[in-house]
Design a protein around this nucleic acid. Structure first.
Length: 250
DNA sequence: CTTAGGATATACTTTACCTCA
DNA sequence: CATGAGGTAAAGTATATCCTA
């Protein structure tokens, strides 16, 4: 037995994305009412912005192709508000392509404000917002959908960065433990008397990565900088496993 | 209890517009 | 000045889920 039996406490590294929770799962549950409509069935009615609803408030704001480019300098905001508050009847150029709504800064600000308070407003709240902003409810709905998507995307980016850092830390720890293990094996076969010492008397300095005889830090299981050593961990009843105890690693 | 259908959510895509080299 | 690439945000589409009649 001996050092060959030392468990590898954290030698398996990975981000563990085998089943990302947010991955879209292909629909395997079309056995109920959904497949009755048939995925290939064409929509019989396509609503467009112009045909969707009457311009109830008269303030849905679209850029006209001929009105371009708000300037970042000067009275851009005023100009933008002015442009955006215009009603474009589309088709002045004969095209029936969709025009793109641009929310004004005040509209965006109010939407942001309400998003802070409630990221998924109920239908009544949406309608109230729409009334206040002189938009259609659908536009408010879409804005919240896209806003939630942006929030989620940003959060995913943050999580990804954290996982990268965590992975780097674990890789470094793994490398260090490997090295320590090799030194211990070497010591075992070259100088067996070392192994007769109580385990707690041996430890490795994480900075110089050499085995030493310090008793105090080894007994504590932590080196001066807080790193763990194999021997000190081995003297404890359980091994440190960063995968089952990730918070300890990162 | 089962089912149809509406409402609404998410995920992904398309499109119009803007910025910048 | 013109232009093309790339980014951003609004809107479209497909599908899932929940609720109700």
């Amino acid at each position: 037995m001996g050092s060959d039996d030392i468990h590898n406490p954290g030698l398996v590294l990975g981000l563990g994305f085998s089943s990302a929770p947010d991955q879209r799962v292909p629909s395997l549950k079309l056995d109920d009412h959904h497949d009755q409509f048939g995925k290939g069935s064409e929509p019989s009615l396509i609503l467009t912005l112009s045909a969707d609803q009457p311009q109830d408030s008269g303030a849905s704001s679209f850029y006209n192709g001929s009105v371009k480019r708000e300037r970042r300098v000067g009275c851009e905001d005023i100009e933008r508000e002015r442009m955006a508050s215009r009603v474009f009847d589309e088709d002045d150029d004969g095209s029936n392509g969709r025009k793109k709504l641009r929310l004004t800064k005040s509209q965006s600000a109010l939407l942001e404000e309400s998003f802070k308070q409630q990221s998924t407003p109920n239908p009544k709240q949406k309608q109230e917002l729409a009334n206040e902003l002189k938009l259609r409810r659908r536009q408010v709905e879409v804005w919240f959908q896209n806003r939630r998507a942006r929030t989620k995307f940003k959060q995913t980016e943050v999580n990804c960065e954290q996982l990268k850092k965590c992975c780097e830390t674990l890789t470094e720890e793994n490398r260090r433990l490997h090295k320590e293990l090799q030194q211990l094996k070497f010591l075992k076969f070259s100088q067996p008397s070392y192994m007769q010492l109580p385990a707690a008397t041996l430890t490795m300095c994480p900075s110089c990565e050499s085995i030493g005889g310090s008793t105090t830090s080894a007994a504590a299981g932590v080196c001066d900088n807080g790193s763990k050593s194999l021997l000190s961990m081995a003297s404890k009843p359980h091994f440190y496993n960063p995968l089952t105890n990730p918070s300890a690693a990162c």
